[in-house]
């Protein structure tokens, strides 16, 4: 363990705090990589990152339960109150209220069936996920249902990958041992990503027909005789 980290832990800083802080650059880099190199559209960097950390706090199983409930209830509420032609913020407030109610019911069910993992889930993680409803609903308005579902699924997959990386115990030990190496590498990799002008993986697929059609200037064209 790095002497600095050792000192902090000895002084009573929770190990969890340090791990999460040092995982942040790694997770952020994974998200940047998936956007620039792979071409996952996602919701910027904040949403997948915060979902991944919320999963860390609640555990993947209950995290997914909360996530899916939030999206479903939020979307249904939006569709239901659409006819009333309300303004944007009140509309969102109603959607949030409905989601809060749904979470309340889930926790109640958890209490009833005595699922301790569920009822002791960190409320802040749940709150953060609830507030993401605004992002998801705004995307639905902007991109239409199909596009929004696609982006949501992409974001969810990305978050789950980030969750597994951040909860990987070997990596957790590693970041505590080499905190500065992690930070240094994150900066270097992101400078590279920020200057990367190559095609994204998804673009190879998107433009595959055009690419096949390209004639390289050096080679002679084969005439059809």
């Amino acid at each position: 363990m790095s002497p600095l980290i050792q000192y902090m832990i000895n002084q009573g800083v929770p190990q969890e705090t340090l791990i999460l802080l040092l995982m942040l650059p790694i997770v952020a880099t994974i998200i940047a990589f998936s956007r620039q190199i792979i071409g996952i559209r996602g919701f910027g960097i904040y949403t997948p990152l915060i979902i991944a950390f919320a999963f860390l706090a609640t555990g993947l199983k209950y995290g997914l339960v909360f996530f899916i409930t939030i999206i479903l209830v939020g979307t249904l509420t939006r569709l239901f109150i659409r006819k009333f032609r309300l303004l944007y913020l009140p509309r969102m407030a109603i959607a949030l209220t409905a989601v809060a109610l749904a979470i309340l019911i889930i926790i109640h069910l958890g209490a009833y069936t005595q699922k301790t993992g569920l009822i002791t889930s960190s409320i802040f993680a749940i709150l953060i996920m609830i507030t993401l409803v605004e992002k998801f609903l705004a995307t639905q308005i902007e991109k239409g249902g199909k596009g929004a579902i696609f982006v949501t699924i992409e974001t969810l997959i990305l978050s789950i990958i980030c969750y597994f990386v951040a909860s990987w115990s070997l990596l957790q030990v590693f970041v505590l041992e080499h905190p500065f190496l992690v930070i240094f590498l994150a900066v270097v990799i992101n400078i590279f990503l920020g200057k990367w002008t190559g095609l994204r993986l998804s673009e190879y697929f998107r433009f595959r027909k055009v690419i096949k059609d390209i004639e390289l200037p050096k080679k002679k064209r084969l005439g059809k005789i």
Partner: peptide
């Protein structure tokens, strides 16, 4: 290999922004 060589001709999102 040809496919990747050809693909350099395509303008992608990254290059659109940076270049």
């Amino acid at each position: 290999f040809d496919f990747f060589e050809k693909s350099h001709q395509i303008l992608g999102m990254n290059a659109r922004i940076l270049a």
